[in-house]
Design a protein around this nucleic acid. Sequence first.
DNA 1: CATTACCGTTTACAACTGTAATCGACTCGT
DNA 2: ACGAGTCGATTACAGTTGTAAACGGTAATG
Lengths: 124, 124
Amino acid sequence: MPIDKRISDAELELMEVLWAADEALTSADVAERVEERGWSLATIKTMLSRLVVKGAIKHREDGRRFLYSPAIKREAYVGSESRRFVERLFGGRLSPLVARLAEEDALDEEDIAAIEALLKELKS
Amino acid sequence: MPIDKRISDAELELMEVLWAADEALTSADVAERVEERGWSLATIKTMLSRLVVKGAIKHREDGRRFLYSPAIKREAYVGSESRRFVERLFGGRLSPLVARLAEEDALDEEDIAAIEALLKELKS
DNA sequence: CATTACCGTTTACAACTGTAATCGACTCGT
DNA sequence: ACGAGTCGATTACAGTTGTAAACGGTAATG
């Protein structure tokens, strides 16, 4: 199902943790995996609740804890955000984005080669 | 100078108007150019003030009106937002973004050709 | 000159964000 | 069984955003 509300920056970090996990996680598990952010456990619980309300994750009860897991796929989210982004700043076209990043030296050889390979693939 | 605060979605629409104009515009001029959004003039004035505070635009007095113009270049803004975006969702690499959009059929022949040309250019 | 029109500024207010303390309920160790 | 710990839920609170009305001053108009 598609997401109705947007996912904020901080929330996205929790999503990444859940997407990366192969199993559903408790809030404590999540906290442990974003420890470097220095968020209090309370903060993480708040964000998890908000993500549930937004429909981005779901939880299953396990005793008196919740086990959280993504309700949307990363590819779907990333895809819609990407479309939104190129729409917003580049009139829906990807090439001006590539041009801009190239101009900013934000592309290295490896990336260039990867993109070329992708495009070659596409044309077949 | 770099932007300290982020520019919101609605604000960006006003920025686009100012970037597109060849001369500084009054709030009424701006309103006229985003008429289709149905914003009240008051709303537009609020957003312009906020943009001034954010340092994204500046204004020059002309009698008792202000003439607004961008304080940052579109390329600079778009560049930093783009870097931020690929950083946030693709670990700073552009190729996965291209892959994702390709997967979503968000790329047409024309776009692909344009990107290939760009890359060819880059390698020389 | 009084009224009207038009400025930018100030104030408003709800939704969303970041960040967290507190609360009521339950469980676990001693 | 009692206190300590732990859960999720509720409440908090400032900053941002979207959206706009109200305000105070000046300029134009009749």
